[in-house]
Design a protein around this nucleic acid. Structure first.
Length: 423
RNA sequence: GGAGAGGUGGCUGAGCGGCUUAAAGCGGUGGGUUGCUAACCCAUUGUCUCGUUUUAGGCGGGACCCCGGGUUCGAAUCCCGGCCUCUCCGCCA
C-alpha cells in the first residue's frame, strides 16, 4: 500500500497511476475520509488529554482523602463521550483503510505507458531459433508418447488442469528444480528456504494478494488459510513485522514451492497441455533491499533468472511490461518468455518485479538506516523459474524426430547420467 | 482433541488497578579513564500518529506491555473472546 501522506500530497500522480494501470481507486473519497478522520482524531485526543489529566487529579485528591465525587461524575460523562468518538473513529478508520489498501502501486518513471500487453517493450532476445527437419510436436504429444506426462489420469485424480508426471517426467521435474536451486544458492548467493504452502490471511494481505485476488486462491474452510499461489507469499512474509539490520541487506532468498491457482477468470484459456494448470512447481527468488539499491537489484535478479534458460540452451525474450500490464503491487516488471517450438509460442516463465516499499508497508518490514531512522525496505521477486513451462520448452526444443527427447548437458548429472528420454 | 503454564522494549526479566513517564540487567550509541585490549565510570537509548513550527530539529498532545472487545474517573494489571508458544496426555505420517 502507498503512504497515506504521499497520497495526500500527490493525489494527481496517484490518480494518473491508477488510470495507467487500468485499476480502480477512490482517491478523492480517500482524501475526504482522511480529513474527516483527522478532525475526529484531533477532537478525540483533546478529550482524552483532559480525561488523563483529571484522572491524575482524582488520584491526588483520593490520596489526600479529599472528595472527588464531582470530578468523577464529570469524567463519567467525558469517558462515555470518548467511547462514542472512538467508535466513530474506528468506523472512519476502517473506511479509510478499506480504500487505501485497494490503491495500486505507482509505475516507475521508465515504464512505458500502455493499455495492455501489446504495449509491452521487447528489450532483449537470446538464443537462436532452433531448426527442425520435421514438424516439432506440442509437449502433450511428446509427453504422452514417452509416457512421462499423463493428463487423463491427472484429471481423473483431481480434475481438469492437474498433471501427473511419471518416470523420467517426474525425474526431469526434480532434476530441473534441483539444478535451479543449486545454481541460485552456489553461483548467485541466495539462501535456500523451504516454506509452508499454507498461509494465513495476514500473509496474503502482506504481499498484496488480498483483497484483490482472493477469489483466485484455494482457501481452507475451517482455518481461514490459503494455499500459496506463489512462493513469494511465504518467503516475503518471513520478515513481516521485523526491523532488519542494515548490515544484513540485501537479503536474498530462493525457495522451491508448489503453487496453487484456481485460474478462476481463465476458463477456456490454454486448456491443452500444461501451460496453465492449478498446481505447479516454481523456484522463486526474493530480495529485501535498501531503497537506494532496489532497481540495481532488480537488474541483477533478472540476470540470475535468465541464467537458467541460458544454461539450458533455451531461446527466450525479455519484455518490459507497460503500465497496463503491470500487477497491482509492482512498480516495474520484466517478463521472461521462453520459446516453445511445438506450440509455437512464447511462454512466460518469470516475472521479475520491484515493489519498492508497497509490500513492505503492508507487511511492516523495516530496517534501521545509517541515520538511525527506521524505514521500509524494498521487496523484489521473480521466478527462477516456473517449472511446467520450462519443461514444455525443454520437451519441445529437445525432441527428436523419433519421439525421444535429449537431455541438456547441465541436467544430465541430475538425471543419473541419462542423456535421452526414450520410450 | 483433553489438561495445565505463559505471551512485557533489540534481548533477559520485574510489575498484577492510580507511587510506571514500564524497574533492573544485558546489548547499542556518545563521552571519560587507560601504553593497547579488557574492565570500570558518566550520559543516552523504542515505535506509530496528530498538532505546531521548521534549515536540521524542536515543542505540545495521543496511542502502543500478543490481537479484539468490555468493566472503571483511571487498565500492562480485572473480565470475555481469539491467536500464538511451551509442558503433559491422547491420536497420527
Amino acid at each position: 500500500m502507498l503512504d497515506l501522506n504521499f497520497i495526500r500530497n500527490n493525489a494527481e500522480t496517484v490518480k494518473k497511476a491508477i488510470l495507467n494501470k487500468r485499476e480502480n481507486g477512490r482517491v478523492d473519497e480517500l482524501l475526504e475520509v482522511d480529513s474527516r478522520k483527522r478532525s475526529l482524531l484531533f477532537e478525540c485526543e483533546q478529550k482524552r488529554n483532559r480525561l488523563n489529566k483529571t484522572s491524575k487529579e482524582i488520584s491526588g485528591l483520593k490520596k489526600s482523602k479529599q472528595d472527588a465525587s464531582e470530578l468523577i461524575s464529570d469524567m463519567k460523562v467525558l469517558s462515555q463521550e470518548i467511547k462514542e468518538f472512538e467508535q466513530k473513529l474506528r468506523n472512519v478508520d476502517h473506511e479509510l483503510n478499506d480504500i487505501v489498501i485497494r490503491i495500486p502501486n505507482i509505475p516507475a518513471e521508465d515504464v512505458p505507458v500502455g493499455l495492455d500487453e501489446s504495449a509491452n517493450l521487447e528489450i532483449k532476445k537470446w538464443g537462436d531459433r532452433k531448426e527442425f527437419n520435421f514438424t516439432p510436436k506440442p509437449h502433450w504429444e511428446v509427453g504422452s508418447t514417452l509416457d512421462i506426462l499423463d493428463f487423463d489420469r491427472g484429471s481423473k485424480i483431481s480434475g481438469a488442469g492437474f498433471v501427473l508426471y511419471k518416470g523420467f517426467g517426474a525425474r526431469l521435474e526434480r532434476a530441473l528444480y534441483n539444478f535451479m536451486l543449486d545454481l541460485h544458492t552456489t553461483e548467485h548467493g541466495y539462501r535456500e528456504i523451504f516454506p509452508p504452502y499454507l498461509v494465513n490471511r495476514q500473509s496474503m494481505f502482506g504481499t498484496g494478494q488480498i483483497p484483490k485476488l482472493e477469489d483466485d486462491m484455494y482457501q481452507t474452510r475451517e482455518e481461514d488459510m490459503f494455499l500459496i499461489p506463489t512462493g513469494e507469499v511465504p518467503v516475503t512474509n518471513i520478515h513481516r513485522d521485523e526491523i532488519l539490520s542494515i548490515d544484513h541487506l540485501p537479503i536474498c532468498y530462493t525457495a522451491f514451492t508448489a503453487c496453487f491457482r484456481r485460474e478462476a477468470g481463465a476458463h477456456g484459456k490454454d486448456t491443452r497441455g500444461m501451460t496453465r494448470v492449478h498446481q505447479f512447481n516454481k523456484v522463486e527468488l526474493v530480495k529485501f533491499t535498501h531503497p537506494d539499491t532496489s532497481y540495481n537489484e532488480l537488474e541483477a535478479l533478472l540476470i540470475n533468472a535468465e541464467k537458467v534458460l541460458q544454461l539450458l540452451g533455451l531461446e527466450y525474450r525479455i519484455l518490459k511490461l507497460c503500465t497496463g500490464d503491470l500487477s497491482f503491487a509492482s512498480t516495474k516488471c520484466y517478463d521472461i518468455e521462453v520459446w516453445a517450438p511445438g506450440t509455437k509460442s512464447y511462454l512466460e516463465v518469470s516475472s521479475c518485479s520491484n515493489f519498492e516499499d508497497f509490500q513492505a508497508r503492508r507487511s511492516n518490514i523495516r530496517f534501521r538506516d545509517k541515520d538511525k531512522k527506521v524505514k521500509f525496505v524494498h521487496t523484489l521477486n521473480g521466478s527462477g523459474l516456473a517449472l511446467p513451462r520450462t519443461m514444455i520448452a525443454l520437451l519441445e526444443t529437445y525432441q527428436l524426430e523419433d519421439g525421444t527427447v535429449a537431455i541438456p548437458e547441465v541436467l544430465q548429472k541430475y538425471m543419473g547420467g541419462v542423456q535421452k528420454i526414450e520410450i
